[in-house]
Every structure is written in structure tokens, then in C-alpha cells.
């Protein structure tokens, strides 16, 4: 296993994301899988980062289990969240969702 910053948690060997354990400010230089990268946005506790390049449509895997699919190509080191992945179960609710439409 390649080394990543201690603030990033790998929950399962099969995962393509790492989970952030504490707030990391934007522009922080981070080690992810043995490579240095610069964080483009601030990352809050509980948020996810791509551990490697992820293709559009590929499953996002956490705990070794699928949690949804990428809606676009996600580059190594990028924030993975509702803007670039979606549920394969049913769409998530958003605060700004229009009633009757998600």
C-alpha cells in the first residue's frame, strides 16, 4: 500500500476514495498514494478524495462496497461528492431540490 497523508483514511484496500479525518485547507500539499499533490479546495472532515483517476460511470467504492457512480471523469486528488458522483439507488435530496423533482 502506498503512503498517504495521515489525515486521509483508507477504509478498504479496494476503495478508490480516501476519507478526510480533519479539515485540510485548500492549497495544502498532500501525499496521496506515494505522490505529492496540491489540494484544490478545502476538504472537510468526512469528505472524500479520489485515490486514483476514476472514469465516468465507474463505481465509487468505499468500505470495499459501491456507494454510487462517477458522473464525470474524476482526476486523482480531486474532491469526490455530489457534483461528480451520483447514487445508483435513488437520487439524493438536496436543500435546493424543487418539490417533486430531485
Amino acid at each position: 500500500m502506498s503512503k498517504s497523508d495521515k489525515r486521509l483514511l483508507l477504509l478498504h484496500e479496494k476503495d478508490n476514495v480516501l476519507v478526510c479525518c480533519q479539515t485540510i485547507p485548500a492549497a495544502t500539499e498532500l501525499w496521496i498514494e506515494g505522490q505529492a499533490t496540491v489540494l484544490s479546495t478545502q476538504l472537510e472532515l468526512g469528505h472524500k478524495l479520489a485515490r486514483r483517476d476514476i472514469a465516468a460511470g465507474e463505481k465509487i467504492t468505499r468500505y470495499g462496497l459501491p456507494i454510487g457512480s462517477a458522473t464525470q471523469t474524476i482526476a486523482y486528488g480531486q474532491h469526490v461528492h455530489t457534483h461528480n458522483m451520483k447514487s445508483d439507488y435513488l437520487a439524493s435530496h438536496h436543500r435546493n431540490a424543487v418539490e417533486g423533482r430531485i
Partner: peptide
């Protein structure tokens, strides 16, 4: 619903991701 806006603020992107956290 089981997936609330606060969940997304906390970094959870989908209902299956949230549920897996409890399921663990």
C-alpha cells in the same frame, strides 16, 4: 427520507454511502 441535507454537508454523497456507515 433517510438522506437529509446535513448528511451531504458532512461529506456523504449518496444514501447508500450513508447507510453503509451505519451498516458497518
Amino acid at each position: 427520507g433517510s438522506f437529509a441535507p446535513g448528511n451531504a454537508d458532512g461529506g456523504l454523497s449518496t444514501i447508500e454511502e450513508k447507510s453503509l456507515g451505519a451498516y458497518m
